[in-house]
Computed example of a mutant assay.
Amino acid sequence: MRENLVIIPTYNEMENIRQIVAAVFELSVPFEILIVDDGSPDGTAEIVKELQSQHADKLHLIERQGKQGLGTAYIRGFKWALEKGYAFIYEMDADFSHNPKDLERLYASCKFESFDVAIGSRYIKGVNVVNWPIGRVLMSYFAGVYVRFITRMPIMDPTGGFICYSRKVLQAIDLDRITFVGYAFQIEMKFNAYLHKFKIQEVPIIFTDRTRGESKMSTKIFREAVLGVIFMKVWSWFKKYEHYN
């Protein structure tokens, strides 16, 4: 079985893609990378293809037509990872808001501490966010308070997108029934893992806002998360979840 696959969705990340690939491959723990590119008009996929000549067996690419959303990109990547037999599958942004060095800490949580899900958490030890305006920090923090109130998940950073899933978690979750595509996707995945009673650990990280490229956050994505949490909780009342711990 292959061990570590980092899934990085991209849309117009030509300013970051070379550096993020290099940073992951420089780590002492071996990681492979799967880029899921949504037809970036800036040529992100072409750069990845160029880099593949240097990293033939470690750098993989899925090209999709048009901007289809974060959630669908990860679902496509999860299915590919399960098909190829990876033991640990990671979510990470391309813009260095997630420090690639923290991948090793997420790996250690799942590999050596036997957690099923490791979340790179901005809020497990205070507020560890750099370069965000105070309004966005407050919106993100209180979104977590709201999610915990509705779902009862004891997770301080339910909207975070820096995560390691063990293979059995993604096999247990019905990926075809994950409905949200924006930040609500991150909540929905964690909620499913929580209801299946998988062991979840939050690993403290420092989140640094991107310095290159443009943010993909929008009011539509935020609205989906706010309303989606309520619908997600209601739907959970009508479904049975097998318990794994």
Rank of each mutant, 00 (worst) to 15 (best):
M1P: 11
I7F: 02
I8H: 03
N12T: 07
E13I: 07
E15D: 15
Q19N: 15
V21L: 11
A22Y: 13
L27F: 12
P30N: 13
F31R: 14
I33W: 01
I35M: 09
I35Y: 01
D37F: 07
G39Y: 08
P41L: 04
D42M: 09
G43S: 10
A45T: 09
A45F: 05
A45H: 07
I47D: 02
K49P: 03
E50T: 14
E50C: 11
Q52S: 08
Q52F: 06
S53Q: 15
H60Y: 07
L61H: 00
L61G: 00
L61D: 00
L61M: 05
E63P: 04
E63R: 11
Q68A: 13
L70P: 04
L70I: 10
T72H: 13
F78H: 01
K84G: 09
K84I: 04
G85C: 12
F88H: 06
I89Q: 01
E91A: 12
E91N: 10
M92W: 00
A94G: 08
F96K: 01
H98I: 05
P100C: 12
L103H: 01
L103W: 00
R105Y: 09
L106E: 00
S109N: 08
C110A: 12
F112Q: 14
F112H: 15
S114W: 12
I119T: 02
I119K: 03
G120L: 03
S121F: 04
R122S: 10
Y123L: 05
Y123R: 03
K125F: 12
V130W: 09
V130Q: 09
I134N: 09
S140Q: 10
A143T: 12
G144K: 03
Y146Q: 08
V147Y: 09
V147R: 00
V147K: 04
R148G: 08
R152Y: 10
M153T: 15
P154K: 11
I155V: 15
I155F: 08
M156A: 10
M156Q: 08
T159A: 06
I163M: 06
C164D: 04
V169S: 02
L170A: 01
L170Y: 01
I173P: 03
I173V: 11
D174W: 05
L175E: 05
D176W: 07
Y183V: 13
Y183L: 14
I187T: 09
E188W: 06
M189I: 12
Q201C: 12
Q201H: 14
E202D: 05
E202N: 04
P204H: 04
I205E: 00
I205R: 00
I206F: 04
F207I: 02
T208S: 07
E214V: 12
M217K: 13
M217S: 15
K220F: 15
K220N: 15
I221A: 09
R223S: 14
A225H: 08
K233C: 08
V234R: 07
W235N: 15
W235Y: 15
Y244T: 14
